[in-house]
Structure formats: C-alpha cells, structure tokens
C-alpha cells in the first residue's frame, strides 16, 4: 500500500520550509494541508486557576492570552491526549509579565516564544496563576493549531520561446511560487516575481506541472516544520487505518 513520493526541499529552516512533492493528486495535497492545520495535536494552555489577579484585565482575557502562547510539543507518543502539564506564573508589578515567566513542571513543554507580553502590571498589581496545558487539535481551537499559513501551489514549468520582435515593448509577466527551468527549481522571489526580468527579450510560456506541488509550511514554534509535515501525514495514516477497520465486515 505504501507508495514512494519524490520530495525535494527548496527552502529549509526550523519554522519555515518549502518543499516540492511529485506524483500526488490535488486532493491528496489538500488533505496534507488540512491535516497540518487541523489534525496535528499541539500543547496549549486550556485551564487557568487564578490565585491573584489585580491587573487591569479580567481573568478570562488573561486566560485567553495564556492559551494563545505557543508551547513546545513533545515527540509523538510521549503524552496521551488527556495528559496535563502544569505551568505557573507569578509576577509582581511594576513590570510586564512575559510568556517566558511561565514556570513549567515538565521541561518538554515550555513556552516556544519567551517574549510575548501577557499583561503590563503597575505598582502593587500582581498576577499569580496556575495553568494546565493539554494536547488537542486545531479543529477544536485555533490555539492548538501548529501550522501557520500552510499552503501549496502547482510547480510551474517555464519554456523559453522565440525572441520578441525588436519594436515590441516587453510586458511584465508576474508569477509567484517556484518555477522549473530545465530541471532546476527557482524561487520566483529571486527575480522579483517577474519573468520578463529573468528572460529579457524572450517569449516565455508558463504551464502547471501536473501532480507536482510546492508546499510552504510555517509553524508557530510548537515543533519543527518538517516535524509538522510528518506528523500530519501520520494522522492521515492512522485515520485511514481507523476507517478501514470501521468498515470491515
């Protein structure tokens, strides 16, 4: 049942990757995208117990802000869906309470960004709270959404044609994404998204390459972008297995 797909990286960073997949259908490409957005479990604060809150914001508002702080999500299998990690925060004004002030009970789950201001505290104001982080999916709440602005485009093949006539003005030809030029992958940002910049004085034809998709994946810091993709594919795999079992006679 396993099929091999040809995957090629165009850009690769911790939180930001761009890669090309060949030999998939548009439906499957969209399935991966949707799984990355909605089906990969991530850690986020879900319940907050306030011990003291004399800041200018209500408990509920602060709980929402704490929930939106991205937390690092441990490797698959470390935690079950209903496990809880407790984080606590205790900051006294004057000063600002940051996400980095959250003290975690398990080092695998800690704030991915330390500089997010939670609330500014004035003289004598204090915030003391205990928060429970749980594993859940983007489907249920956007705070559990590991992938940010995940999308894909067709790979575009560029063929250079004839020279344009001497007296003709060349028009700008804007495309975005990644082009394939003689087997070489080129980001359109390298030539300002304008084909007339890369091939001056030439006629250029652009066509979509069937079955080839360039994904652009960004994460909120819960895990590496490559991790997000593999986890998304794993969720599709396990859901497909569940379905197969469910429809068995």
């Amino acid at each position: 049942m396993t099929e091999a797909y040809d995957v090629e990286f165009v850009e690769r960073g911790d939180r930001n990757i761009r890669f090309l997949v060949r030999g998939v259908t548009p439906a499957f490409a969209n399935g991966i995208r949707r799984a990355m957005v909605a089906d990969v479990p991530t850690m986020a604060i879900d319940e907050v117990r306030f011990i003291e809150n004399s800041s200018v914001m209500f408990d509920e508002q602060l709980a929402l802000r704490l929930g939106l702080v991205p937390l690092t999500t441990p490797p698959e299998g470390e935690f079950a869906e209903d496990d809880v990690v407790t984080l606590s925060i205790d900051v006294e004004g004057p000063g600002t309470a940051y996400s980095g002030d959250l003290v975690t009970s398990d080092d695998l789950v800690r704030p991915a960004d330390e500089n997010v201001p939670i609330i500014k505290l004035k003289d004598g104001q204090r915030l003391e709270a205990e928060a429970d982080a749980v594993l859940d999916r983007g489907k249920d709440h956007a705070k559990h959404q590991g992938g940010v602005a995940v999308g894909y485009r067709h790979l575009q093949r560029v063929t250079v044609g004839e020279d344009i006539s001497e007296f003709e003005e060349q028009e700008a030809q804007i495309i975005r994404g990644v082009i394939e030029d003689d087997g070489e992958l080129v980001l359109t940002s390298e030539f300002d998204h304008d084909l007339s910049e890369r091939y001056p004085g030439k006629e250029v034809h652009v066509e979509d390459v069937p079955g080839a998709f360039v994904f652009h994946v960004e994460t909120d810091g819960s895990f590496d972008a490559t991790d997000l993709v593999t986890r998304a594919v794993d969720t599709i795999d396990s859901r497909a297995a569940d379905l197969e079992e469910a429809v068995q006679l």
Partner: peptide, 20 residues
C-alpha cells in the same frame, strides 16, 4: 489594551515583536 498574542487572520505569533 495589550497587543494581541497572535495574528487574528493567520495565527502567527506577533506579540513577541511588539516591544521592539
């Protein structure tokens, strides 16, 4: 009141850049 933690539209964390 305080700067939003994440972008309303895409969910990217923007709060950390506010102070700078």
């Amino acid at each position: 009141m305080m700067v939003p933690v994440r972008c309303f539209t895409c969910g990217n964390v923007v709060g950390e850049h506010w102070e700078e």
